[in-house]
């Protein structure tokens, strides 16, 4: 489904600051995979997401999504089929525009060939309201309010809704609950699980919560030095504890997992 073949990326090449963020990384995902990713600071987790989403072009290798080579496709074109959530809830929505206008923008992705001068219709509004009511946050009655008035959790939930309103081929979650308070984080995570399950979305999720990495989804990757050092799934993963994971990580890389925000347990 997603086929990443030997991608590399070096930032500031040829200078003293040269940093190889991705180093010949390979990754194959099957349709419906829900993969969690953990790793040290600077392991290349977010860089991997940026490469998939097209924030930059890779120096080497290729990326194929559902048979289509997207290695050199522009970011805004990829985002028609790749949904993305960032850690910072501010990044996903336009604060000066209303909830309804934000959703209309997200809905644009569906509208291949729709007239650019079409406006939000009554039917669209009904659809938005229905989708918002799934969040259980009362946002369905606040369609006309600017998004800037919402809390971080509400904004992140809205972003999640917007990213999945038109089912994406791939959903990238970059620690999307890390900036929220624990209760809100749980709620957004529940929503994520529900939406991903219901729509069978192929999903990659970066987390710094080790337990979460094992509990959620069907496969876990560990990254270090711009590559995948551990890839567990199936029964092996089902029987794994956080301690096992750390031991395996050390065995694979020769050093202990180093992440200043890592959570070893709940």
């Amino acid at each position: 489904m997603l086929k990443i073949e030997h991608i590399s990326k070096t930032f500031y090449p040829g200078t003293v600051n040269a940093k190889t963020a991705l180093n010949g990384l390979n990754l194959h995902l099957d349709k419906g995979d829900f993969v969690t990713i953990i790793g040290s600071n600077g392991a290349g987790k977010s860089t991997l997401f940026n490469a998939i989403a097209g924030a930059f072009f890779v120096d080497d290798g290729s990326i194929t999504l559902e048979g289509e080579d997207i290695t050199f496709v522009q970011e805004y074109k990829r985002s028609k089929t790749i949904g993305r959530l960032f850690q910072d809830p501010i990044k996903g929505t336009a604060p000066g525009m209303t909830i309804e206008e934000n959703m209309a923008l997200a809905y644009l992705r569906a509208s291949h060939g729709t007239f650019p001068f079409s406006r939000i219709t009554k039917k669209d509004k009904e659809f938005f309201r229905e989708k918002l009511s799934l969040l259980n946050m009362g946002l369905e009655d606040r369609l006309k309010q600017p998004v800037g008035l919402l809390s971080g959790g509400q904004r992140q939930a809205l972003t999640l809704l917007m990213a999945t309103m038109v089912t994406p081929k791939l959903l990238l979650l970059d620690e999307h609950t890390a900036a929220l308070d624990p209760a809100t984080a749980d709620k957004v995570l529940e929503l994520t699980k529900k939406i991903v399950d219901e729509n069978k979305i192929t999903c990659l999720m970066i987390t710094h919560n080790m337990q979460q990495a094992l509990d959620l989804g069907n496969r876990t990757l560990m990254m270090a030095n711009g590559n995948i050092v551990l890839d567990v799934k199936g029964e092996e993963r089902a029987n794994m504890s956080v301690e096992d994971l750390l031991t395996r990580f050390k065995a694979g890389t020769g050093f202990a997992l180093d992440n200043d925000r890592i959570l070893l347990s709940e």
Partner: peptide
């Protein structure tokens, strides 16, 4: 009227949140 159309909304988002625009299917 124009700023309420899909194209107009995309223009407003471009000025309002560049990060969002980059991650949605709008070509800034």
């Amino acid at each position: 009227w124009f700023l309420g159309t899909r194209l107009g909304l995309s223009i407003r988002a471009t000025g309002n949140n560049m990060d969002m625009v980059r991650a949605s299917s709008i070509n800034p």
